[in-house]
Simulated assay, not measured.
Amino acid sequence: MTPKTPAPRHFAAPRADGDLHGTDSGPSAEPATAPVADAPAVTPLRFGYGTNGLADLRLDDALALLADLGYDGLGLTLDHMHLDPLAPDLAARTHRLAKRLNALGLEVTVETGARYVLDPRRKHGPSLLDPDPEDRARRVDLLIRAVRVAADLGAHAVHCFSGITPPGTDPTTAWHRLADALTPVLEAATTAGVPLAVEPEPGHLLATLADFDRLRRTLGDPEHLGLTLDIGHCQCLEPLSPADCIRAAAPYLRHVQIEDMRRGIHEHLPFGDGEIDFPPVLAALAATGYRGLTVVELPRHSHAGPHFAEHSLPFLRNAEAAATRTPVLVPLHGDPSATPEGSTS
């Protein structure tokens, strides 16, 4: 598969009336003379599902499931069970995967949030902020491998995050480490033509949109530095609403993750279990002109991954339809054979 160079994006302004999902009160709610043909065409959003929420499935089984359910693509977390980035013959395995994705018609984003892929004892360790330069270099190497995989798969972005500030490390030192560590990764991304999409993560050094802006300015606003926006994280800790976060981040959006969440609690929840009003969120996202994948992010629900994958897409499509005032009822499938259990870490 030939690597894709992201096309320039043109960002549309949000609707002036601010009404993203209102209802008509009667025939007089819309002008009788308004020509239907003049209504702007809306390009449907493209939804994917994260393989970190299907960790109990073989990768090929996960791909077949998502294709059968009607997903447009997937967020592929490089991990020991799904395209191990450290095992031999990575290029050959990536080539085979590219052919499979092409046959199934699935798009892909490469994600790098595997918990123990580098260290079996330290979750997400080592990070880009590790005090040991050799440990930081291991994380950098992983990200550069991810960029190469993304290029070979034709992925539209590579996701990453900063990591938690190590104990005893002052913020200035941590920010210097992050900028230095990301420089060779951005060089690789520029060479490959694949955007690097940094995710603000609650509890990390780079936790908010304001932190992303700081990194962008520090690095000189490089072309291939973009943003992964997690909608739940916006609900969790941003001062703006999730829809306003999308509008603020629009010029830098390269990857979007989505799930439900509650204010002040960093817990990824199935849709309907949190506090997010999704039609305004999806309306705002569509208005930006974003054409990458919007990937369901439920990493702690792999015990019932097929169930949540099956139910998430109809929810999102119905929310998208509500956002555009053209409801299309998509029936939910029946319950899975096993009742979903509690989430696991």
Rank of each mutant, 00 (worst) to 15 (best):
194 V>D: 05
225 L>G: 06
213 D>M: 08
210 A>V: 12
210 A>T: 13
206 L>Q: 10
227 L>D: 04
221 D>V: 05
192 A>H: 01
210 A>L: 06
208 T>I: 11
206 L>H: 04
197 A>L: 01
228 T>C: 15
225 L>H: 12
208 T>M: 05
223 E>H: 14
198 V>M: 15
225 L>W: 11
230 D>S: 08
189 A>R: 01
228 T>I: 02
218 T>V: 10
216 R>E: 11
222 P>Y: 06
195 P>Q: 00
213 D>K: 14
203 G>A: 05
197 A>W: 00
199 E>R: 12
221 D>M: 07
189 A>E: 00
222 P>F: 01
207 A>N: 01
211 D>V: 15
216 R>Y: 15
225 L>V: 11
215 L>S: 09
224 H>K: 09
212 F>P: 00
218 T>D: 13
210 A>D: 14
189 A>L: 05
209 L>G: 11
190 T>A: 15
215 L>F: 08
217 R>D: 12
198 V>H: 09
230 D>H: 06
198 V>Y: 05
228 T>S: 08
220 G>E: 08
213 D>Y: 09
209 L>R: 09
218 T>R: 14
223 E>Q: 15
189 A>F: 00
229 L>S: 03
191 T>E: 15
201 E>V: 14
192 A>M: 03
193 G>C: 11
203 G>F: 04
216 R>L: 15
193 G>A: 08
192 A>F: 01
225 L>P: 13
215 L>K: 10
231 I>Q: 07
205 L>C: 08
225 L>N: 11
223 E>V: 14
200 P>K: 02
223 E>S: 13
209 L>K: 03
227 L>W: 01
208 T>S: 13
209 L>Q: 09
207 A>P: 00
225 L>Q: 10
203 G>Y: 04
203 G>E: 02
208 T>Q: 08
214 R>M: 10
228 T>Y: 05
222 P>I: 00
215 L>H: 02
200 P>R: 04
219 L>N: 01
197 A>K: 09
223 E>W: 04
231 I>C: 08
192 A>Q: 03
195 P>L: 05
219 L>T: 11
214 R>I: 11
215 L>E: 09
212 F>L: 11
203 G>L: 10
221 D>H: 14
209 L>N: 04
193 G>E: 07
212 F>C: 00
198 V>L: 15
189 A>V: 06
207 A>K: 02
205 L>F: 06
209 L>W: 05
212 F>M: 09
205 L>D: 00
212 F>Q: 06
217 R>C: 03
190 T>V: 05
227 L>A: 10
189 A>H: 06
231 I>R: 10
199 E>W: 12
230 D>P: 13
210 A>W: 01
220 G>D: 08
200 P>E: 00
199 E>N: 11
195 P>R: 01
217 R>H: 12
214 R>F: 09
204 H>L: 02
204 H>W: 04
